[in-house]
Amino acid sequence: MEAFTKLTSSLLPLDRPNVDTDAIIPKQYLKSVKKSGFGINLFDDWRYLDPGEPDQDNSQRRLDKDFILNNDQYKNAQILLARDNYGCGSSREHAVWAMLDYGFRAVISTSFADIFFSNCFKNGMLPIVLKKSEVDKLFEASLNDPDYSISIDLEKQQVVADGIGSCQFDIDEFLKHCMLNGLDEIGITLQYEDKIHAYEERLKQSSPWLFAHD
């Protein structure tokens, strides 16, 4: 997992509440055998005017020009700005994979659904909860100016934005530690690498038959 320390980027304001994971990545794409490649189908139903299937040539599909993801002025944004209860619905980790694959590294909202929130941390995507007044101001600024850019500093737990000042956010200490150091759960377990090796050595002594085919 990529570490997250600081990020300066413009915002993509997605001005709808209760965006569910079905909307983030529709169910037909779950048949994929990959964790990458979902970016092209992120928000598929909103982004394209005609229905999509896995493995389709998406360049042939008609885009909904009114949907903000199709506005080229926002195409470099690495921060998604969302409304209340972002990521509700099914538990699919594919939703986070799709956002990462598209190029987002952080998502800011007033609130997130639980499972989506924890899936973010498993994949190096930083979800930030700010106050409603702060989120409102960010929406206003980024809708008016696609180049409007903010800075996130995870160590200081701060979002710094022109015209708004610096906003503090809360984060669980352990999750923060993992994000700062790029430790996913696997990374955390691998901190005990020596203990795992030592365990295996003991096991080879006590139960050698378990290693007969190694």
């Binding site: 997992m1 055998v33 990959k34 964790k35 990458s36 994979w97 696997i186 795992i196 295996e200 190694d214």
Partner: peptide, 19 residues
Amino acid sequence: SPQAFEGLRLAGRVPWRKA
């Protein structure tokens, strides 16, 4: 298993104990 294998590859890891 497919996404698990892909995750492993993306992170540059290999299976701990193939046997």
